[in-house]
Design a protein around this nucleic acid. Structure first.
Length: 190
DNA sequence: AACAACCTCAACCGCATCAGA
DNA sequence: GTCTGATGCGGTTGAGGTTGT
């Protein structure tokens, strides 16, 4: 369960985290905050890389994390946001308070992608009208993709000054935002 | 009961970008 | 402007659990 790190003879621990490791990590983060992950790893006396600590904290230990039981409303939101944003899991997760990008990505890969395929096959051939809606959504989506993400090179050739994070700011975690978002997305499909 | 096939999800990996020196 | 370490992201893997035969 351990592998050698290039610059060090000390093997880094890999694989599942133990309760003891979780406790140590949470303790150090409580004191020093969730940044400088390499420092956190060494301060916590964890034989883990900083990346691993960060991931563990973000996906599992962080407070206010909801686990499992994705509601119908949330599922609907994921579907709609994915339609608009594509595989931008962190962006999608940002609109679902308490959910992590990893969880949403997993949920999509194991549940929703199959659902979509199934649905797609049903619709295929019988719903030519749907293409119009799809086209419209795609156009809107491509505008959204000109957002502030550094990944898609939005700096180049974008004439759309649109920031998804600002637009969909749910940072107050108000549940009514979910309803608002659902209504908004319904407008897109209308 | 035994085994295979399938499913789920935590964790890892590689890469891009950011930020500070 | 360049370099380097830190951070963030999406894709992928694999262990463990569940279901089917």
């Amino acid at each position: 369960m351990a592998t050698l790190k290039k610059e060090s003879a000390k093997p880094m621990e890999k694989g599942a985290w133990t309760a003891e490791e979780d406790r140590k990590l949470a303790e150090v983060i409580e004191i020093h905050g969730a940044r400088r992950w390499r420092t956190i790893a060494s301060r916590a006396d964890l034989n883990r890389c900083g990346k691993s600590c960060r991931l563990r904290w973000l996906n599992y230990l962080r407070p206010n994390i909801k686990r499992g039981n994705i509601s119908d409303q949330e599922e609907d939101l994921i579907l709609r946001l994915h339609k608009l944003l594509g595989n931008r899991w962190s962006l999608i997760a940002g609109r679902l308070p308490g959910r992590t990008d990893n969880e949403i990505k997993n949920y999509w890969n194991s549940h929703l992608s199959k659902k979509i395929n199934k649905k797609g096959k049903q619709i295929e051939g019988s719903n030519r009208e749907g293409q119009k809606v799809e086209k419209k959504t795609t156009e809107f989506s491509s505008e959204l993709k000109e957002d502030n993400s550094p990944r898609n090179g939005s700096e180049e050739g974008s004439n759309v000054n649109f920031n998804v994070d600002d637009f969909f700011d749910f940072s107050d975690e108000d549940p009514s935002n979910l309803e608002w978002m659902s209504r908004f997305l319904e407008m897109d499909e209308a």
